[in-house]
Amino acid sequence: MIPRVTATVDLAAIQHNLHVVRGLAPRSRIMAAVKADAYGHGAVPVARALEAAGVDALAVACLEEAMELRQSHVIAPIALLEGVISSEEAALAVYERLQIVVHDHWQLALLEALPASAQLSLWFKLDSGMHRLGFPLADVPRLAETLRRHPNWKLEGWMTHLACADEPDSDVTPAQIARFDAALAQTTGPRSIANSAGIIAWPQARRDWVRPGLAIYGCSPLATHSAASLGLRPAMTLESRLIAVREFDAGEKIGYGGTYVCPQRMPIGVVAIGYADGIHRAFANGTPVIVNGRRVPLAGRVSMDMITVDLRGAPDARVGDAARLWGADLPAEEVAGHAGTLAYELFCGLTQRVHFRHLPAPAAALRSVNRGV
């Protein structure tokens, strides 16, 4: 059986991008984000590749994501970015030696209800201006006192999250950094501020820990910089194939609603991929697709299972030819712009109908053999 849509993930590219991040922040430890199934790339194989390449820790959103990694024998430190939401989760997180990010006092109450002998590893998340999760900055002395009352609690560090790091000219990020620093001026413990954009655009945000996400997957978080200019390698290539090539006269309308009108007699190709695979219906006419190494534009609305493309730029295209939606020669962040969205959403939006293929990285393969996996 031939898959109609294949996402190929190059684990060597994942490892390469980790080394790029380490070069940008050589004095920082790296906590790589593998939440949301490693941004749609496959949490277990990506985590194993990062582990083999020497990542210092991994970050997931919730306990379920952490358990998937632990059950697959990933032994690297794992942080729960949203913390725990019940006493049962708290107990299991302690048992699995997970690092718990605590962002509110109700979570502290859950942890304080555990046996006094429980060995906890935790981060305190502070709200320096994102206004999503995090303790008020004024709570720092109270949190420090909580630590003193619990000698079995190990503080991994203090973290915050940047709201506008992808805007290099914004005054929001310097203000957030200054507020975070001022709140912790009299407090010890490692600090973590920078996400991918912070690592690249804001050197002053590279502290004891950095937390790259999108950069690990080979995408630039900055509109002003391409992934290639940063030395990043896209890890995912998404491909389908042409299942029809037809000629239409000038004036003929293509697809639902007839939103594309042929300006002349021309070839139209049908590619076996649609919004049921994760290709946004919001993609506009003109969105690039690569057929036979040439860029051709989307022509007509995205359907559930198909898209149609203008093949005038690839006149030799035939049924069965590969059609690439994004990859090394067509950056996902560029494609996302045609739907008014971000590469994050493209990656995370791929559905179960997509066939995934992971190209092994030599170091990851060696580590798997050594673990007996």
Rank of each mutant, 00 (worst) to 15 (best):
Q15D: 05
L18Q: 04
G23Q: 15
A25N: 07
A25C: 07
M31A: 14
V34L: 06
K35I: 04
K35Y: 07
A38S: 06
G40M: 08
H41Q: 04
G42F: 02
P45A: 06
A52I: 01
C62Q: 15
H73S: 14
H73R: 11
I75C: 13
L81P: 00
I85E: 15
Q99H: 10
D104N: 08
L110D: 14
L120G: 04
L122H: 05
D127L: 00
H131I: 06
G134D: 15
F135G: 04
A138Y: 01
P141G: 12
R142K: 11
T146P: 00
R149K: 11
P151M: 12
M159R: 04
T160Q: 14
L162K: 06
V172Q: 15
T173W: 11
P174K: 03
Q186R: 02
A194G: 06
I200C: 10
A201D: 14
W202P: 00
A205Y: 09
R207P: 00
D208S: 13
D208T: 11
W209Y: 11
Y217T: 03
C219G: 12
A223Y: 04
A227C: 09
S229P: 01
L230K: 08
R233Y: 04
A235V: 06
T237Y: 00
I243W: 11
Y260V: 10
P267W: 14
I273D: 11
V291A: 00
G293D: 12
R294P: 04
R294F: 08
V296Q: 14
V309S: 08
W326E: 15
A328L: 05
D329G: 02
A336F: 12
F347M: 12
R353Y: 02
H355V: 01
V369D: 15
G372Y: 08
V373D: 15
